[in-house]
Each structure stands twice: as structure tokens, then as C-alpha cells.
Amino acid sequence: MARSAVAVPAELARRNNRVVRPQDAAGIYVQPRPELARLVRNGAVRKLTHGYYALVPGRHLGSPTWRPDLHSLALGIAQCDYGESGAALMGVGAARVLGAVPRAIAVTVVAVPKQRPPLETDYGRILFVRRTLDTLDLERADTELTQGWITTPEQTLLDLAARPTLGGLPPDAVTEALRALWPRTDAELLEELARTQRKAAALHRARHLVDVQGD
């Protein structure tokens, strides 16, 4: 039988980013850490890793089986630390959100402005890659925990081809993702990005893999 969940304060519930840190609740609670721990016990919040929590979406309140999506929580964590304009899902993370990786994976990748070690969460591993976001081709995406930036199909294809081992997907899964992304890309934009980002070799590799594995 599902436990009744205690609702979070309105000030937190109104946040665009449903990932919170104790300091984000400092203006609401005198002692935010114990209060967040209480909300975890009551089912209104999930602890993601040390110092980060996710507010359970309303439709899942009271459900002990709900698990936050790794890619969504990763974007939310990065937004907490670098702001909405300082984080973007990329690589396998963007590919998963774009539907190019059909199976759930336990690793995701986020572009951020600073070097940062990987972060282990209760729901998977987050890899942070230092990128200048202004140079990336991005688009907006809605996830279950936040709204934010992800790389476009063109940028995602180039990034996957440039660093196919980042995120630990097996080679056949990378090829599958490239094949899924290819029909959604604009040829002129691909060429332009490959030129300006010095990823001509990555574009050549992607073409080769798609053609070799194609029907």
C-alpha cells in the first residue's frame, strides 16, 4: 500500500527545476537538510546523491516505485550548479532524450563550463564535459524534472562520432544511435558544424558507419 506523501512548500513546488540542494531551501526552512530528509521519508522527495534531491512530480506523489529519469536529474543537477544557461545534455544523454538510444542506460553526459569529476547518483552516473556552450548547437527540451538545453541531432551526431566511447555505449549501440539521428539532421548544418568545430573526421566517421551498417 502506497504511503501518503507530504506536499512540499509552494515556494519549492513552483520551481522550474525540480532538483534542489539544501541551500536552495534555505529561505524556506531554518534547517533545510533535516526538512528535506523528512520529505524523503514521507515520499515527497527522492534523494539523488549527497547534497541533491528531486521533488516528486505531482502525479507520482505517494508512489514508492517512482524513479527519476537519470538524464533529467543530471540536467537538473547541472542547472543547480551552473544555471539554466550553463548546462546542456550532450552525447549519450542527448541521444537518449532525442530517442536515438531506445534502451535505458545507466550513464549520461552533461556539458558544463567547468571541469568536474563524474558524479555517482542512486540512479546512475553523470559525466561532466567541459564545453563552451555558446559554440554548441542546442535546442530546448522538456524533461520530467526540468526544462533546459540539449544538443541538436546534428551536434549530438558529431559528438557521438567524435567520442564514441564517452558514456560506455557498445560500438553497435553507437552505430544504432548514429543511424537513428542521421535522417533527422540537416546536411548543410552538419557540414557547417563540422567545419567550425573541427569535427570533419567525426563527420566522415559517422558517414562511414551509417553507410556501412545501412540497408
Rank of each mutant, 00 (worst) to 15 (best):
D69K: 00
A100E: 12
V107C: 09
R207I: 01
Y52M: 09
V212G: 03
L39C: 04
W66N: 00
Q155P: 10
D134C: 14
A26G: 03
C80K: 12
L98T: 15
L73W: 03
E188D: 13
L55G: 11
L119T: 14
R125D: 08
V112M: 13
Q155N: 06
L145R: 05
L39D: 00
P164R: 06
T185C: 15
A201P: 00
L178E: 05
T49R: 13
L127K: 10
D122Y: 01
R67N: 02
R21Q: 11
R3A: 04
S63E: 13
A202Y: 07
R198Q: 10
V110G: 12
S85G: 14
V101E: 11
V101N: 07
T196H: 07
H50M: 00
R15Y: 04
L193H: 09
G91C: 13
T152G: 11
P118K: 10
D211I: 03
E35G: 01
L98M: 09
M90E: 14
P118L: 08
E192H: 12
Y82H: 15
E120A: 13
V6A: 07
T156Q: 09
R125A: 06
T175W: 02
E192K: 03
D215R: 11
G86E: 11
P164F: 11
P117F: 05
L89W: 13
P183N: 11
E120L: 10
R130Q: 15
L157S: 06
R41F: 00
Q115W: 04
A7I: 07
A7H: 13
G58P: 06
I77M: 15
T143R: 02
D24G: 14
H50F: 09
D134S: 15
P22Q: 03
L61H: 01
C80M: 04
E120N: 13
L136C: 15
V8R: 04
V92P: 07
P164H: 09
F128E: 08
E84Q: 15
R195P: 00
P34G: 07
L203H: 04
L55F: 06
R205E: 09
A2D: 05
A5W: 05
R207A: 00
E176W: 02
R67L: 04
A187V: 05
A106M: 09
P118F: 06
A200D: 09
G76I: 06
G51I: 10
V92W: 02
L133V: 15
R195L: 03
V92R: 12
P32F: 02
